[in-house]
Design a protein around this nucleic acid. Structure first.
Length: 496
RNA sequence: GGUCCGAUGGCCGAGUGGCUAGGCUCAGCUCUGCAAAAGCUGCUACAGCGGUUCGAAUCCGCUUCGGACCUCCA
């Protein structure tokens, strides 16, 4: 890994950029909070998973062996933090008249489809909460054994106040327990709790509750925060490298995870680097299901949504998101999507030119410094996965490719080789962008032959200075979405 | 009410105590039969008011505006 810049990660826990050193290099353990599968994912969810797709890809690119664990939350947690709240999956099951597990399967499938469309790499392990009920019950026993939890009416709650006597609670989100105690909103149905800050480890289910399991305390279901503590520990150990999720999970979810892990083992700091992706906004406001300002990938691609002027391809969206840093909010707009679409197009056109790029000089052109470009790419990613900077460097490479293609610059075969592998590595492997083709795959070969023929016919018309015929062919193809490009070397076509 | 974050050119969006971010748009030019593509040039901004400094958009304070979390949320 000597040729790469050191990697710095902004650690949400310390609020500082820290040099990344894995616990057991070259192995890296990463846990990311996955979706609750009770409805379709929306674009904001996609952004978070994209952020960690980039982290996963870049760590792999650097040569690390990453175990990437991303859970599926399929236990029906309550819609609110009160005892009378309905569970989300159960509610949806009643609405759609399906078994809860049918709901879970349906939206898990949808989630996987979306991840595939956006070219996200699947995680190494994708554990589900319902598959780890036994482990969660064991964890509750450990926490109770250390005196940080109590039973109330068949439910088990984590005692934040008791825990805070031994370990600081609120470190991650920068909260002080006294402030929390003074400012917690009064909610109904918290009679079972000794303290409003306490959170459920196990909830006793009422008769109408559909998803429930036996436990030593009651027939019920585990608390939301517990599954991540349990599954991360099971697959990555009591201490591991990276834990990620959306900014909105910082409090209370991740704070509670820390308390549970420490509460179960007595050892603080189970996670070495906490990473939080920022929110996607619309007109400056967080995109959220409850706001009604999100849309599904289907709507995004088709453009069938009031916020969308037209549809955008998945790679356009991916590129758009990568043009902003993961830790900043990113504002969605049609103008920005369209700008990204054109930029991506220019990048991809340059990439497809790489193969037939002419090489002239045997000796390296000293004006062309591929190593410096590669260095700048590595610096950008090493600085807390700064994809916007990486992309800006890649556009310098685009400029270089175009200059060579137009004969303004000459490069040696060696330079061409290193440029190609460098650019391919960052565009395809690190950023995970793909060349999108709009044509149906089965007819591509045939229509390509026909198009080549038309371009040839137009070429002869041109050499006869028959501009009428030449322009007629170009205009007719243009109307079909095929653009003709003339250059000194001849003409070519491409789908626009 | 509490905690925290942000305010960058026509739009999006990086960055930073002195050195061109980048993309898109717009205008001019080169190339070209014309066009497209590509290239070059220009439009050169850091919310406002004070302060620190040789020097601040970048550090500090205040003001205004916006946002997030405090309740399920990526």
């Amino acid at each position: 890994m000597a040729q790469f810049s050191p990697l710095y990660i902004h650690n949400s826990l310390t609020r500082e950029k820290e040099l990344f050193t894995p616990l057991n290099g070259p192995y890296v353990g990463m846990y990311v909070c996955g979706p609750t599968v009770y409805s379709n994912v929306h674009l904001g969810n996609v952004r978070t998973f994209l952020t960690f797709d980039i982290v996963y890809r870049y760590l792999s690119f650097l040569g690390y062996k990453v175990r990437y664990v991303r859970n599926i939350t399929d236990v029906g947690h309550l819609t609110g933090d009160s005892d009378d709240g309905e569970d989300k999956i159960g509610k949806k099951a009643r609405l759609e008249n399906l078994e809860p597990m049918e709901i879970v399967q349906k939206y898990t499938n949808d989630f996987h489809d979306v991840m595939r469309i956006f070219n996200m790499k699947p995680p190494s392990i994708e554990p589900s909460a319902t598959g780890h009920i036994v482990e969660q019950i064991e964890a509750i026993k450990s926490i109770m054994g250390r005196g940080y939890a109590y039973e109330s009416n068949g439910s088990i709650y984590f005692s934040v106040r008791k825990y805070n006597e031994d370990h600081p609670y609120g470190e991650l989100s920068g909260r002080k327990i006294d402030d929390l105690l003074n400012n917690t909103r009064s909610l109904d149905g918290q009679d079972e709790k000794q303290d409003p800050l306490d959170f459920a480890l196990w909830k006793k289910a009422d008769a109408s509750h559909l998803m429930k399991w036996p436990s030593p305390w009651s027939e019920g279901f585990p608390g939301w925060h517990l599954e991540c503590s349990v599954m991360s520990t099971k697959y990555l150990g009591t201490q591991f490298d990276i834990h990620g999720g959306g900014m909105d999970l910082k409090f209370p979810h991740h704070e509670c995870e820390i308390a549970q892990n420490t509460g179960a083992t007595g050892e603080p700091r189970s996670v070495r680097y906490w990473m939080h992706g920022n929110m996607l906004t619309v007109n400056g406001r967080k995109m959220a299901k409850s706001e009604g300002n999100g849309f599904t990938p289907e709507e995004l691609i088709s453009g069938n949504h009031p916020l969308l002027e037209r549809g955008y391809s998945p790679m356009t969206v991916r590129f758009f998101m990568l043009q902003g840093h993961y830790a900043s909010t990113l504002d969605f707009s049609n103008d920005a999507l369209q700008a990204a679409e054109k930029g991506l197009d220019r990048l991809m056109k340059a990439l497809s030119q790489l193969d037939q790029l002419p090489c002239a000089a045997e000796n390296d052109n000293t004006e062309v410094d591929i190593r410096l470009l590669a260095q700048r790419c590595s610096d950008a990613m090493g600085d807390d996965f700064n994809t916007p900077i990486l992309i800006s460097v890649l556009f310098d490479a685009v400029k270089l490719v175009n200059n060579v293609a137009d004969g303004r610059l000459a490069i040696s075969p060696q330079q061409k080789g290193s440029l190609t592998s460098m650019v391919h590595g960052y565009v395809f492997d690190v950023l995970g962008l793909t060349q999108e083709t709009t044509a149906g795959a089965d007819s591509v070969g045939e229509s390509a032959g026909l198009l080549d023929l038309l371009v040839q016919l137009r070429g002869s018309a041109k050499s006869n200075q028959d501009w009428t015929t030449a322009d007629a062919i170009r205009d007719a193809l243009g109307a079909l979405g095929i653009a003709i490009k003339d250059s000194k070397e001849g003409s070519s076509w491409e789908r626009s």
